[in-house]
Every structure is written in structure tokens, then in C-alpha cells.
Design a protein around this nucleic acid. Sequence first.
DNA 1: CCTGTCAACTGGTAATACCAGTTACTATAG
DNA 2: CTATAGTAACTGGTATTACCAGTTGACAGG
Lengths: 240, 240
Amino acid sequence: MEEHKSNTSFKPIATRKIYQYILEQFVHLVSTGVLKPGDKIPSERELAESFKVSRPSVREALRVLEIIGLIDIQPGGGAYLKEMELGPFISVVAPLMFSRDRFDLELLEFRELIEIRAIELLPNPLSAEALEPMGRAIGEMRRALQDNDVEAGALADIQFHRSLLLASNSFILQKVLELVVSLFEHAVRGGRSVVLEKQEDAAQLLHDHERIYRELASGNTDQAKKLLSSHLMMVRRYLR
Amino acid sequence: MEEHKSNTSFKPIATRKIYQYILEQFVHLVSTGVLKPGDKIPSERELAESFKVSRPSVREALRVLEIIGLIDIQPGGGAYLKEMELGPFISVVAPLMFSRDRFDLELLEFRELIEIRAIELLPNPLSAEALEPMGRAIGEMRRALQDNDVEAGALADIQFHRSLLLASNSFILQKVLELVVSLFEHAVRGGRSVVLEKQEDAAQLLHDHERIYRELASGNTDQAKKLLSSHLMMVRRYLR
DNA sequence: CCTGTCAACTGGTAATACCAGTTACTATAG
DNA sequence: CTATAGTAACTGGTATTACCAGTTGACAGG
């Protein structure tokens, strides 16, 4: 059972699989800008021929690219590069996360930490393009409230925060918040009650969003920050 | 070009691929605790027969499980479940991240935000098991400083922070910090200069770590927090 | 001009085969 | 008896081939 003591410093030989080489070349081409979002990827058969490997090897590489959200594959169509999205990855991992005890609360606390930091980095004033999706989310939320559609309301709530964070100046915060928000979205769609159920609470949420939106629209970013901050803390207190 | 206006609310039909079904079953078994870390996964051929699908389909599912760091595959051996690790995912995505402008600095700022929050959640007092890897990292850093081995020093620095965050009480912060720290590690191994190069700076880092370690070991968690906080801010100022 | 058809793509899946590495059992040499 | 070498039965990695199903675009006929 014991290992041989060896004075020589032989290092274990790391063998790499073919799909990793393919993956590496793709990532390199993307990170150097040779391939850009929107570009069409050659067909699997062409790639197999170019790389001089078999189609299954190519497919495994594409599978990974799909999971990390770098390409969209349309059966019958082809594969297209896109800006990296965390959605596919999240949808796989989310069940593992939420199976943990009290994950919901932890996630909310984490989101509070990040989102408050993100709004500190909002450009001032906000552009119209940044404001527009927020307005839409509010409209959606108002409609859901009237219809008493809890899930739609929760999703609209998420959409509001998503559009808010997308306006942030920090790339990392955007990605991390996208990840967090996606987790929430997954939880809501899965029927978990990370959301407010009572109508008056939903109305309060809507009201908060509207105030934040108004302040942002009229350029009072600082005031909006304070509102959002207390808004998030209110939500957390509610859930605890 | 215009789409037909349809009053009926037909929703697009989402077709799912076989590997997704397999993936789903696996994730479900793991999240419900039926499968636990350390368990051996049946061979690809057995799985193919159980699921009544072909081996390539099984392999694509396993490939994804490998990328999200849920299984270890040993060629010739078999596949074993493990606690989810972000390493494999990071190693694919890292080049994409660092190709962005000023990503290093953003990452450092983000890490500062998270890590300061994480140390607020450190248990008090720290267990010996939590302290031990920190001590090792310090020893390694000291050795690297004497040898003037910049890369080894940087890796030991990372290892110190990694062992610190692993002691935190928050699952999410652990995972996110693991992600961030892995990104740093990747950058260092890639030869990027996210690290301090001058020897006196490295000595300063080591000195900071030693002080933090001493405070933690003697139970003065609060004092350690303050030290770590100013330590991180110092590092950031240096890089800016 | 619109519409349906058809051929040539695309990715999804299956089946099969072979290679290379691991493992465990076994026979053989000492 | 023990330790070694050999062997057989695994494992995953890769390649090949084939067929299905969906998309696309050109083309012919209304």
C-alpha cells in the first residue's frame, strides 16, 4: 500500500483529451476577438475534418461551449456564438444549490451585498435605453398585481432588478448579479416561495420600484440608491 | 418579414436533448442525497443500457458533469462523484474573462468586497483544522520569499486567502470566493502580473499574513478582521 | 407573387469497433 | 510461500458509419 519514496522529482503526466484541445482553440479565438458574438460556427462535420478528429470529439467540445453559454445550437440550423451567458450553467447547477439548507436566505443576503455595491456604480444620469426595460418590468408587475398572478409578479420583480444591474458599470458585478438573479428566477419558476405572496406586500414592492424608477429617470441617482438599499433590506427582513 | 399576428397564445415547443434528461436525473439524485460524494458511477455502457440510450448520449451528459466539477473521470478507472468544484469550469472560462479590459482590477475590487464580508462571518474562535492550512501557506510563502520565487509566493498568497475563506460560515461566499480565488490562481499560473513583484512588497504581504494568523490563532478575531481589511485595501491601492 | 415540393444541408442519436489504460486474478519463477 | 510477471476482463477515449429529423433555400407550378 505504501508509495515508493522517490528522490527524483518525476511529475505525473497529465494527458489531455481531444475535446479539451478543441475547446482551448475556440476559447482562444474568442478571447482574441477573431470570433465574435453572432458569428456562425462551421458545421460539426467541417470542424471534424479541419481538426482531423472524429465528430463525437467535436460534439463534446460544442457541448461544453453550450453549457458555459458561449454558443447557441439550433438543431437543423447551426451553432452561433453569443455573448457568454450563465443561464445554461445555472439551470444545471441550481437544483444542487437549493437543496442546501437555508440557501434562499443566504442568497438573498449575498444579493443585497452585491446589488447595493452595484448601484453605487451606476452611471449618472442613466441612459434612456437603460431606463426602458425597467419601465417595462414595472408595467408588467402592475399588471400581475391586478391579476393577482403571484408568479408573474415575482418574475417581473426579478426582471426589474435584472435591468437595473445591467446598467451597472462593473462587468464582474453584472455577471455575478446575473448569476444570482438567475438563481432566483429558477427558484420562482420551480415554485419555491422565495417571493412575497400577500397582495399588499406585492403592492409595496411595486411602489418601491416605481419610486426608484422615478428618481433614476429624473437623475437623482443618489436618492435612488438610498431607496433601493432600504428596499432590499425591507425584503430581507420580511423573509426572515 | 413581419410576423403573423396571432391572437392564440401558442407557445414554442421546447425540445430537449437526451443528455439533458440524463443530466437531470443525475442532478436530482445528487440533490436528494441518493448519490453522495465518493460514490462510483456505473460505467458508460451500463448507464447506456439502463437509460436505454446510446453511449455517446451518456458521454455527453458525463462531459457536462465533469465541467461543472461534479464528477472525476479516470480513464481506465471509472467516474466518481465529488463535492462540486468550480475549478474545471473556471479553467475554461478564465481566458474569456481576462481578455476583458481592466478585468484584473475589477476582480480585485470585487474580491475585496466579498472577502471582507466573509471574514465578518468567521466563526470565533477558529478551529485548529481551519488554522492549519493557513499556517502551511505562510510557511510556503516564507520559503518562496527566501528563494525569491515570485510565482510560488503568489500562489502561496492565494492559498492563504483560500484557506481563510474556507473557514467562513457562508456557503455562497465560500463558493464565490473560491471562484474568484481560482481566477487569480489561473492568472498567476498564466504568467499575468496580478502579483507583487518587488521583494520588499512580498515581505510586507508575508508580514501581514503572519499578523492576521497570530490574531486568529489567539482568538482575537475582530482584530484579525481589521488587519485583513486594511491588508486588502493596501494591496488594491498598490495595484492601482 | 405566393405556395408547395424537393434536395441539400444541419444537428441528434445510435450502433459498432478498436485502442489504451486500469484492475484483479492467476500462474509461474524464485 | 512469496513476489513477480503475465493475462483476462474490465474501464474510458476515439473513430467510423449510418440514419433520423429538422432547417434552409432553390425551384417549379399554381
